[in-house]
Structures are given as structure tokens and as C-alpha cells.
């Protein structure tokens, strides 16, 4: 099976291979993976893949999940049009 063909983040089309490769290379946090690849940063707000990114990073670094949420939630938790911020 080609791991390049497994998409993890559907919104930004980031592959399993890329996330695994970058985590191994940089031994970094899931937040850094998010910033490097845009995984979990797309239209859905990471609802579909944030756990997947966390899990890959946690497996590769062999760190059990902590109580704090690794990829923090930020408002808005749903996409909203700019006009709702008060602009036109």
C-alpha cells in the first residue's frame, strides 16, 4: 500500500506519509505538524483529522496523550462569514 495515497487531512489533502516523515524528521509536536503541513487547519477546523494527527505524533514520539488538548481549540469553532465580525 502506498502511504502517500492515504490522505489524513481531507480539507488540505495532507498525506499520512508526509505527517509521519515530518514528525520523524523534526521530532516535533502536533501543533508544529499543523503549522508545517496545514493538516487540521482547513475548512472543517480539524474536526475530522485532529485526533489522527495527535495520534501519529504520539505514536512516533512514544509519548502517551496528556490531559491538555494538544491542538488547542480556538473560536470560531464553525466557519463564519466575515460580516459576523461586524465588518461589511
Amino acid at each position: 500500500m502506498n502511504e502517500k495515497d492515504i490522505i489524513i487531512c481531507r480539507c488540505e489533502e495532507v498525506s499520512y506519509e508526509d505527517i509521519v516523515h515530518l514528525t520523524e524528521l523534526y521530532q516535533c509536536s502536533s501543533r508544529e505538524i499543523k503549522l508545517r503541513t496545514r493538516a487540521a487547519m482547513g475548512y472543517c477546523g480539524g474536526r475530522t483529522c485532529r485526533n489522527l494527527v495527535d495520534q501519529i505524533v504520539s505514536e512516533i514520539k512514544n509519548e502517551p496523550p496528556a490531559d491538555n488538548i494538544p491542538l488547542t481549540y480556538r473560536p470560531p469553532v464553525r466557519p463564519i462569514p466575515f460580516r459576523l465580525f461586524g465588518g461589511e
Binding site: R10, E13, Y43, C44, R47, T48, P79
Partner: peptide
């Protein structure tokens, strides 16, 4: 341009 359809059907995935 990859085709997308219904995925979660309850408003979570925005696909």
C-alpha cells in the same frame, strides 16, 4: 479537483 460527497452527514466534516 478531487470529487467529494457526503461524509459525516451531521455537519461536522463540511465535505
Amino acid at each position: 479537483a478531487s470529487p467529494r460527497g457526503i461524509y459525516c452527514n451531521i455537519g461536522h466534516c463540511f465535505e
